[in-house]
Amino acid sequence: MADRYKKVLTKKDSSKVKNSLSRRIFLKKALISGVAMATTVSLAKKVSTLAIPDLNPQKLNMNDVIAGDIAMAQKKYILMTKREKEDLVQFFVENYQKDNL
């Protein structure tokens, strides 16, 4: 009988030790991961700040807009023929009916 109890208690103890070990390992891993992540983020931020020195929102916006204006201004504008206009209207009507059946 005594042996039987001993065996059970030993099993319990070993599982406790195992639990505490795995918790310790988990916490250690979590800590290391946290530190690694924080380092990576701060490093990335530092690098991006150095690489892109001017993050002025207005300037960035104008970079988009001016390029667009220049591109749009260099087009040729061609009047549609009567047939083209009729076909286009027909296309819109049919497309609407197809989508909203």
Partner: peptide, 30 residues
Amino acid sequence: NMDKGYPKDYGIEVGGNAYENAGVTLEGEH
């Protein structure tokens, strides 16, 4: 010129053009 085809170098002549190219090849002023 409206029914005289697309402006020069523009492919198939099925449309017309109203503005001469000179007016539209300039950069816009912003």
